[in-house]
Each structure stands twice: as structure tokens, then as C-alpha cells.
């Protein structure tokens, strides 16, 4: 497990770039989450809703974004996770996930989190408060 205790303000966690969004990604998420809104999986339904094509579930992107913190669950947990969905994610978009330390003390680390597409546009923006278990961290 990685250690968080070396982080300081403005540091970033190792960023992750996802493989291009595929239909199967969204079908899998629909199945796993129970969100079968057809605008995420069926072209005709997305077009009927006035979209150029199917879009990812916002929660799929939010779920992906949380994995930046998964290596650190031995040191603490995500106490607060807040996001705003700012842009749609389409098929074949390439999403990059990033977290930057905003504030840090012995109990918690506040991160700014963002998911951007291949054009650098923010699709999700938010904050994570990571509460630390205190044992010499």
C-alpha cells in the first residue's frame, strides 16, 4: 500500500487516463448499478433525447474518479466526496482523472478532484475529504 504521509500542498496523486469510453463500459455500469436509463446504452434513445449519441452515466465517471484514492484505504477513508457534473462524456472520449492536495493536516487531506476529456474540458469537478487514521502518519 502506498503512503499518504509524504504528501504536501499542491501535490497530485498519480493521474489515471482511462481507455476510450466504450459501449460495453456503459452496459456493464448499467448492469452493476441498476441504472438502465437508455440514453446511456441505446443510440436511438439518446438521439430522441436530443443528444448526438449515447453518453456515459455521470456516476460511471464519478465512480472511476474515486479510484485515485483506492490505494490509500489502509491510511484512511473518503469521508466526503462531492462532485458537479459539468460536461457530457461521449463514446470514445478519453477521460483523465486527477486529484490535487488543497489542504493537509494530521487528521485529513482535502483534495480537489477533476475528470477531463481529450480536449481538456472538465466533465466532473469536485472535492474529496480523505480522513486519516492516526498512527504516526
Amino acid at each position: 500500500m502506498k503512503q499518504l504521509n509524504v504528501l504536501k500542498n499542491s501535490d497530485t496523486l498519480e493521474k489515471i487516463t482511462l481507455a476510450p469510453v466504450s459501449r460495453i463500459d456503459l452496459i456493464k455500469y448499467a448492469d452493476a448499478s441498476g441504472d438502465f436509463n437508455p440514453i446511456h446504452t441505446i443510440d436511438e434513445e439518446a438521439e430522441k433525447a436530443g443528444l448526438p449519441g449515447i453518453i456515459a452515466h455521470g456516476m460511471w465517471t464519478m465512480g472511476n474518479l474515486s479510484k485515485l484514492f483506492t490505494p490509500y484505504y489502509e491510511d484512511g477513508f473518503i469521508q466526503d466526496y462531492k462532485v458537479r457534473f459539468r460536461g457530457m462524456v461521449f463514446l470514445n472520449d478519453v477521460i483523465t482523472l486527477q486529484a490535487t492536495v488543497e489542504e493537509i493536516n494530521e487528521r485529513r487531506i482535502d483534495f480537489k478532484v477533476v475528470a477531463t476529456n481529450q480536449d481538456g474540458k472538465e466533465v466532473i469537478k469536485g472535492n474529496v475529504l480523505f480522513a486519516k487514521y492516526n498512527d504516526g502518519c
Binding site: 433525447a49 456516476m59 484505504y73 473518503i78 469521508q79 466526503d80 466526496y81 462531492k82 462532485v83 458537479r84
Partner: peptide
């Protein structure tokens, strides 16, 4: 049933 936009989402945990 259709056309809703998910604007924001927050979670607050006391533990995982």
C-alpha cells in the same frame, strides 16, 4: 422518467 439531468452528487461517510 426521461430527460432528467444529474447535476451534482455528494456522499458523506462516517466509515466505509
Amino acid at each position: 422518467k426521461k430527460g432528467l439531468i444529474h447535476g451534482e452528487q455528494n456522499y458523506h461517510y462516517s466509515r466505509p
